[in-house]
Design a protein around this nucleic acid. Structure first.
Ligand SMILES: [Mn+2]
Ligand SMILES: [Mn+2]
Ligand SMILES: [Mn+2]
Ligand SMILES: [Mn+2]
Lengths: 221, 221
DNA sequence: TAAAAATTTTAGACAAAGCTAAATCTTTCA
DNA sequence: TGAAAGATTTAGCTTTGTCTAAAATTTTTA
């Protein structure tokens, strides 16, 4: 369990790290978080003791694997809440950040994952940022749910959301796996099922339930 | 702005006060909040300095008007979040409290009131507790929205939810105000409007929109 | 390459919130 | 009514997180 402040530091270090591969400096974090370098040093030493950052005096610091995971799960919460505020509570684009900055610290895995489900497992927040998944993985920029692929387009499976053995068995039966090429032949609005073609197989129909659990990358061109 | 801990103390004092009119004791709060009497004394002195409680050494304490208002607004948040979790995130009755205990500390009047609207201005939380309104007033136990009054029953207006001048003007035009007696004559499921009678006036029809903004107490007997 | 500038760390304070142990006040009851 | 018991407060300490000022280190630059 991390405190509110620790979580904000982890997030700050993560965000600053995205600018490049260099170690993060005390000064950068102080500016980012609106505090003083001496306060940052203090906190970094605590995070280092908890093995959340690698730190060498005067040499800057980086997140450990554990630290990065924690940062991504906080970012996940932040972005899910932002989307909730915009989609369901009529917040505007610009009003959400401040509130999400607080909501992200509410600690309850059940809550986060229920919220994710309620929002229908979104991939991007209202600012277009990718929402890390339940394991803290950043899904690819261009990964979308199969239901969003337009007719006649071809795409490749990048992520299988439902990892139950039932679903994986089903996918085996219809010859779909990671990286499988899928072409949308026709869609049936009535039950939101779609007819698709997989190379060297005959056409099959996928139910809405199946489509919602398949994430894909569109074939470029 | 109060801290997380201060808010929990205010809530605890409020809840304990509901048991009776006596001043609250250090020991009671310590037990309620799961801490020690010495910690409570410490906090009570801080709350006293902030004029949120009236305190005389060794004599117990009570919430000031300001303290009570703050307590009720936190309770409002707590109960609205509980209802949200149960109604929209499939939490059970028993899972909500712990999470609401955290969510209640998120500070954003906009958020609370949007959540209230999203939930359709509920009067009770999943545990049947009354949700204080936007001003921290506890609506009467027996106050219900006009749409819920059965046919042929008589009731009295106890709360006017929409306080816009447009609505108040409308109410003037149809001779409805606080405490007005309203008898339901007939309801039209088609558009959810109802025909009602106000003493010494001719019958009028109220639209669903109007009914949803009028809260009433049923005439007993 | 050595002094100046910039950055980082340490030292020392402070506020919030908790604790234990000791002191003080109130209540009970013999 | 005056101990004893019980409740409350104070004193002193701890942790988290912040700050300023001073010391230490690194980087820049002349
Ligand atoms: Mn935050
Ligand atoms: Mn965002
Ligand atoms: Mn709480
Ligand atoms: Mn409740």
């Amino acid at each position: 369990m991390e405190t509110h402040a620790e979580e904000d530091y982890l997030k700050a270090i993560y965000s600053i790290s995205e600018n490049g591969p260099a170690a993060v400096s005390t000064k950068e974090v102080a500016e980012y978080i609106n505090s003083k370098p001496s306060s940052v040093t203090d906190m970094i030493q605590r995070l280092s003791a908890k093995k959340l950052v690698d730190y060498k005096k005067y040499k800057g610091f980086t997140l450990t694997k554990k630290g990065k995971e924690k940062a991504l799960l906080i970012i996940r919460k932040h972005r899910l809440w932002e989307l909730f505020l915009v989609e369901h509570l009529n917040f505007s684009w610009s009003e959400v950040h401040e509130v999400a900055e607080q909501l992200e610290h509410v600690s309850s895995p059940l809550l986060v994952n229920r919220l994710d489900a309620f929002l229908n497992y979104p991939v991007r927040d209202p600012h277009g940022d990718i929402i890390p998944d339940i394991n803290g993985n950043l899904r690819d920029d261009d990964t979308i749910v199969l239901t969003e692929v337009p007719n006649k387009k071809t795409c490749f499976v990048t992520w299988i959301k439902d990892s139950s053995s039932e679903f994986l068995t089903y996918l085996d039966q219809v010859n779909i796996g990671l990286d499988t090429e899928i072409k949308i032949l026709e869609s049936y609005p009535y039950d939101r099922s779609i007819k698709v073609k997989i190379p060297r197989k005959s056409a099959i129909t996928l139910s809405e339930k199946v489509c919602k659990n398949l994430y894909v990358r569109l074939n470029e061109n």
